[in-house]
């Protein structure tokens, strides 16, 4: 039986600061690279021997090419800070690829819209790479990318998306670059201007952003897929810790729902399947 997920040590090729608190890790991970789909993630062991921190950290696959994978990450706490200390030649223990990933629509004549909030650019760049592969087979495909960031200083991947040939639009909370305001406002402007060809929306970012995109998608009758985050203990579907509330297809009562695991049935969910709550 062929393995769908690997657990192994992989060699660090590079681990450099992109800007401020953002780093890019490149690993020689042929097994993961060849299997990975955009939207999938890996669980990285950040401790070495002392089991501190204890749990692995989930990180999206940012790019997978030529036997390598890339991880774009922000230093948030202990685990991500330890990660910044890994030098080329050292090894990291990874489990991956994990999760379902984005389902790429037929390489047919669809247009795609990618909406990234903050670190949400991480899985979406990999998705754009794959969409572009389809694009070369079908010139009519157009990829629009919307990136939202707190400030110009927090903006990531603009260049990378542009060099793939995507149309990139930017929104910052403080207006230091591009549109001043929420990326969803910018998105709505564009959606109301698109008359034909229903594009698919792919998105990743904060919960509040995903929720407003779910609203916009249903208003404009578009299919939208978002990648979700949850606290994960195992990342492999064993602990039942990472659930979100989703629609129950077999529901009997109005308020029925089912919990689905972000690490296994997700992290990508169709946004109209998700039940948005206060948490």
């Amino acid at each position: 039986m062929k393995k769908k997920t690997l657990q192994r040590n992989f060699k660090v090729i590079a681990n450099n600061k992109v800007k401020d608190n953002y780093f890019k890790l490149v690993l020689a991970a042929a097994g993961i690279s060849s299997m990975a789909r955009p939207g999938q993630f890996v669980m990285i062991e950040t401790s070495s021997t002392a089991f501190a921190p204890l749990l692995r950290r989930p990180m999206s696959i940012h790019s997978a090419q030529k036997g390598r994978i890339e991880i774009l990450y922000e230093t948030v706490g202990e685990g991500s800070r330890i990660l910044t200390q890994k030098r080329p030649g050292e090894h990291l223990n990874l489990i991956g690829p994990l999760g379902n990933g984005f389902e790429i629509a037929d390489p047919g004549d669809r247009n795609s819209i990618l909406v990234a909030g903050g670190m949400g650019v991480a899985p979406l760049l990999f998705l754009a790479e794959k969409l572009v592969e389809h694009k070369s087979k079908n010139a009519r495909v157009r990829i629009r990318v919307f990136i939202g960031a707190k400030t110009a200083g927090h903006l990531l991947c603009e260049k990378e998306f542009k060099s793939l040939g995507c149309d990139v639009k930017i929104a910052t909370d403080d207006g230091t670059k591009g549109f001043k305001g929420w990326v969803t406002e910018l998105l709505e402007e564009t959606l109301s201007g698109i008359a034909t060809a229903m594009p698919r929306i792919y998105t990743c970012g904060p919960m509040s952003m995903l929720e407003s995109i779910a609203g916009l998608a249903s208003e404009y009758g578009m299919a939208a897929y978002g990648s979700f985050e949850a606290h994960m203990a195992c990342g492999i579907g064993a602990c039942m810790g990472c659930v979100i509330r989703t629609q129950d297809e077999k529901r009997k009562e109005r308020n029925d729902f089912v919990y689905r695991r972000v690490c296994k049935e997700g992290p990508v969910f169709q946004l109209n399947q998700v039940i948005w709550g206060e948490e």
Partner: peptide, 20 residues
């Protein structure tokens, strides 16, 4: 059983809490 509301796990020093 549906289990409890998330978040259901969090890391603690040399351990974790769960409320599955």
């Amino acid at each position: 059983r549906q289990g409890n509301f998330p978040p259901r796990t969090c890391e603690t020093p040399a351990g974790m809490l769960n409320s599955i």
